[in-house]
Simulated scan of single mutants.
Amino acid sequence: MEAVTVIIETPKGSGQKYDYDLRTGKMKLKKVMPLGLVFPFDFGFIPGTVGGDGDPLDVLVVSEVSAFAGCAVDCRIIGAFKVVQQEHNGKPVRNDRLIGVPEVSQRYADVSSLGDLSKTIVEQAIAFFTSYNQQGGKKFSVLEKLGAGKAFQLIEKSRKDLPMDRLVEIFLPLRDGNGEVFPKQLYDGIRVELTTKFGGLTEYSRNPAKGFWKPDEGTAEQDELLVFEVMCSETDTEFWSKLKLRLLKLFKQDSLIIRCSKIELLCCCVFGALGFFHQRQD
C-alpha cells in the first residue's frame, strides 16, 4: 500500500492540543489539557479526507521521535481503531483513529500491522483517547481494531466522500508558433492522465476558445485553445505545478494557464424537473 502524508498538529509529549485553522492556514491552540495528560505520540490528520465528524481523518503517528506542529510526515498506515464518539448532546458520531508509522522510522521499520506493536502501546493509545474525550465530556468507544487493509479502505472511502467543489481548467494551444497543429496524441495522453486521476473530464474541442494577445510590435493575433476541465475536492498545488511545467515543455510555450475556481451548487426547477448549475467564484 502507498504511503500517505500526515500533517502533524500536536507533537508527542505535548500537554496542549493544536488544530490546523483552515481560515488562516496556521496551527491554532485549541485547549490546555489537565496536568499529567499528554499525547503519547504525534497526532495529526490526512489532508484530502473527511471523517464521520466532518473533519479530516485523524492519525496517531507511532515513532521514536517527536515532530513539530505543521510538519508533513509520510507514513504507512498499519491499522485503525473503529470508533463511535458520543458528543455532548448524546449524538453518536463515527470518529475513527488511524495508526501510522513514519517511513523513515528505524525503531519501527519492521512494523506493518497493529499486531506488530506491543500490546502496551495499543492499550495506552486507547486509554489516552478515552481519557482525552472524558475531559471534554464525550464518551469514546472502540468498536473494532482494523488491520492495515481495512484501515486504508477507510482512507479511500473518505476521499470519495469529499465534496467535488473545485473546477480546474487547463488551457492548451492547438497550434505552435508556426501555425502548425499539434499532434492529436499529445492531447490523448493528457486526457487519459486526467481522467484516471480525477475520474472524469470535460473538454471543449469543437468550438475552441479564442485568446488574443499583443506582442511587442503591437499587432493583435489570435490563439486557438483547447480547454480541459476536471472537478476535484481540493487543489493539489504540487500536482498542478508539476503538470504545468511538463505542458510548457511539451507544447514549447512560454506561458500556459491552469485556473481553479470554487463551485457553488445552486438548485433550480426547470419545467418541473430539478436541475443544478454551478457558479464559479474565481
Rank of each mutant, 00 (worst) to 15 (best):
G51T: 10
Q185F: 10
F228D: 00
V227N: 03
E217K: 15
Q86Y: 15
S131F: 06
I155P: 02
C267Y: 14
L174H: 03
V61Y: 10
T196A: 09
V227K: 06
W240L: 08
F45P: 03
G15C: 03
P40F: 00
Y18N: 05
R259P: 01
P92R: 02
T120R: 04
D223R: 12
L57N: 04
E180C: 05
G100R: 04
G275S: 14
V6W: 01
R97A: 08
E103C: 10
L265D: 07
F129Q: 11
D116M: 15
Q16H: 06
L226C: 07
L265E: 13
P163T: 05
F68G: 07
M231G: 14
P40T: 03
L172M: 12
E238Q: 10
L265Y: 11
F198T: 04
L248H: 06
L154V: 12
S112L: 12
F277L: 15
F276T: 02
I170D: 00
L35V: 12
L167E: 15
V32E: 09
A273K: 14
R280T: 13
R107T: 10
D176P: 09
K262A: 08
D223V: 09
F140M: 12
G211C: 03
I46K: 01
G147H: 05
E264Q: 14
L256Q: 03
R159F: 02
S112W: 10
I78A: 02
I263S: 07
C268Q: 12
N207S: 06
D216C: 04
M33Q: 06
L146E: 03
F171Y: 13
I258F: 11
H88W: 00
T10F: 12
T130L: 02
F228I: 05
D188Y: 15
P40Y: 01
Y132A: 05
K139I: 14
G199R: 02
I121E: 09
D21Q: 08
R107P: 00
G189S: 08
A151Y: 09
R166S: 02
